[in-house]
Amino acid sequence: MTERRIRVLIGKPGLDGHDRGAKTVASVLRDHGMEVVYTGLHQTPAMIAEAAAQEDVDVVGLSLLSGAHMALFPRVRDELTARGKGDVLLVGGGIIPHDDMDSLEGDGFAKLFGPGTPTTDIATWIQEEMEKRFEREGEEA
């Protein structure tokens, strides 16, 4: 059995220019054996969803530090659904108040990671979630 590599898209929606976190996480996920596509800055929700569909990723991670997450994150989710990618593992991080994390986690996001989260925790969490998913897919197939 060949182990399937996890494919991840890291996206920066909106006009926010803070990309240290997104790029650091992208590098660390790559170190953990995942295939990572980084969108670059200043992407609209549609651009991110389009890239996710084209690259056929398993995971979409959004990073936003500008406070626009409540306006933009759900739009990315909607754009993904519109392209038949509503089933990706959708995660996010940035400067996001806990109330907003809770509400996004109840609204299509699997997990929000706050400031100070070790990047290895993010990688491990994604690996564990994806293993569960791959197992389920295996059972169904």
Binding site: G14, L15, D16, H42, T44, S66, G67, A68, H69, M70, A71, L72
Partner: peptide, 10 residues
């Protein structure tokens, strides 16, 4: 259109 959600935030 691109300013959506960002107005007055940071």
């Amino acid at each position: 259109e691109l300013s959506l959600g960002e107005v007055g935030q940071v």
